[in-house]
Design a protein around this nucleic acid. Structure first.
Length: 386
RNA sequence: GGUGGGGUGGCCGAGUGGCUAAUGGCAGCAGACUGUAAAUCUGCCGGGCUCUGCCCUACGUAGGUUCGAAUCCUACCCCCACCA
């Protein structure tokens, strides 16, 4: 039996990597896209639909699950896996992204972040310790450190502040996680039940990113390392440059998780720069908003030309939606405001990204990733952008 | 037959003399969306042009008052409510 959290690097093709990550609830073949299920559900989709789309692991969110229903409820009902009935691996984000996205609802101090709940207005102080403790109660396979995300346009000074604070908070998360894993508070589980992953910050500044990696690697043997603070407003070439700068500094035997990314082209670009794991809400959000990713580029499901179309969204797609429903029907569902439309396009987009990971993996294992990714990016550039 | 209310752009519905091509909403068209405050948000939405502006058409129909009318007056047509 593979030890929990072991990552086997199976092949490299240029900077691209294929591997297998062993987690308490199962294996994750990489590169892989992880659908986001903020509230303990991949929005709009039944867990079986997520599974059939090929998802190996999904996310949950610490901050949102803390507000609703509360980690005590989740724990009382058997933990996140049992609560949601998702029996494959899960990862919880720490709430660090909400430091960025709910910027107008929070105040940062060294102690932590005080949020004014967007749900009921109550004040909630989230600290590195509490974010870790909440995640322990939720019980996902992987917990993320509580970090300080700054916008993509952040100055060197602000990016440095966020990066250094994230390092200090990482240490506090690590201690709390070790304490909990040791059963200090009588919580269930053990050191093998949940991993804690650090997050590289530093904005768009190469020196800060490098310092972040150094700081993280000095403090422990991590079973995975995340790259945060990207796709938050910086231009794509800048994100690519940051990834290229990071790759050589990262240990090869540790999986790399690019947080919050991305669109299809971002996956291909990221994989080409050594990223193993991705997550992004765009698949489901765009699905709900009527934009489908296809092998021929983006399709606006609501567009009039699809009115009489009997064709599937993407003839090259093996998802449940494309196997059964026409563009004309999907357009009708959107126009009629029927929820099935939102769900069907979400299913398609999730499958599209997961399949993209599967295809990339196959090409890396076959040693053909370079040509394949170049062709793919070529096909999906310009007017047919992905 | 009588009395009262009303007829506004694809639909609903504001507007009672100039700031009105006419508030809103819906429908329609397009765009945005990256560790989810999002089944959301933004823009366009009478026609035409030599398009930072100009012209035409338009508030039931026809006439009138006025420098100026969707807004006031007259007649007619139609719709609704109540009474006979």
């Amino acid at each position: 039996m593979t030890p929990a959290f072991a990552f086997e690097l199976e092949a490299e093709d240029g900077a691209a990597r294929a591997g297998t990550l062993a987690l308490p609830h199962g294996l994750v073949r990489t590169p892989a896209f992880m659908p986001v299920g903020t509230h303990g559900t991949v929005r709009g989709l039944h867990p079986e639909e997520v599974r059939r789309a090929g998802a190996q692991i999904i996310l949950g969110n610490t901050y949102h699950l803390h507000l609703r229903p509360g980690e005590d409820v989740v724990r009382a009902l058997g933990g996140l896996h049992r609560f949601t009935t998702w029996d494959r691996p899960m990862l919880t984000d720490s709430g660090g992204f909400q430091v960025f996205s709910l910027e107008t609802f929070r105040k940062i101090s060294e102690a932590g972040v005080e949020f004014v709940s967007h749900v009921d207005g109550t004040r909630r102080l989230i600290t590195p310790e509490s974010a870790t403790a909440i995640q322990w109660q939720l019980g996902a396979d992987i917990a993320m450190q509580f970090d300080h995300v700054v916008p993509g346009q952040a100055s060197h000074e602000l990016a440095r502040e966020g990066m250094e604070r994230s390092l200090r908070w990482l240490e506090r998360c690590r201690r709390e996680h070790e304490r909990l894993a040791g059963g200090a508070d009588g919580a269930p589980g053990s050191a093998t039940a949940q991993a804690l992953w650090p997050i590289i910050q530093g904005g768009t500044h190469a020196d800060l990113r490098a310092a972040s990696v150094r700081g993280i690697l000095e403090t422990g043997d991590w079973t995975g390392i995340a790259i945060g603070g990207l796709s938050v407003g910086e231009p794509k070439p800048v994100m690519h440059r940051v990834l290229e700068g990071l790759a050589p500094a990262l240990p090869a035997r540790v999986p790399r998780y690019l947080m919050g990314v991305g669109f299809p082209a971002d996956l291909v670009e990221g994989i080409a720069r050594g990223v193993d794991l991705f997550d992004c809400v765009a698949a489901t959000r765009n699905g709900r908003h009527g934009t489908a990713w296809t092998s021929a580029g983006r399709v606006n499901v609501k567009a009039a030309p699809h009115r009489l179309s009997d064709a599937p969204l993407d003839p090259a797609c093996d998802c449940e939606t494309c196997g059964r429903f026409s563009r004309g029907y999907l357009r009708h569902l959107f126009m009629a405001g029927e929820m099935l439309g939102l769900r069907l396009v979400s299913i398609h987009n999730v499958r599209f990204l997961i399949r993209l990971g599967e295809e990339a993996r196959a090409h890396i294992l076959a040693g053909t990733f370079g040509g394949w990714s170049r062709d793919w990016l070529q096909r999906h550039s310009g007017p047919h952008k992905a």
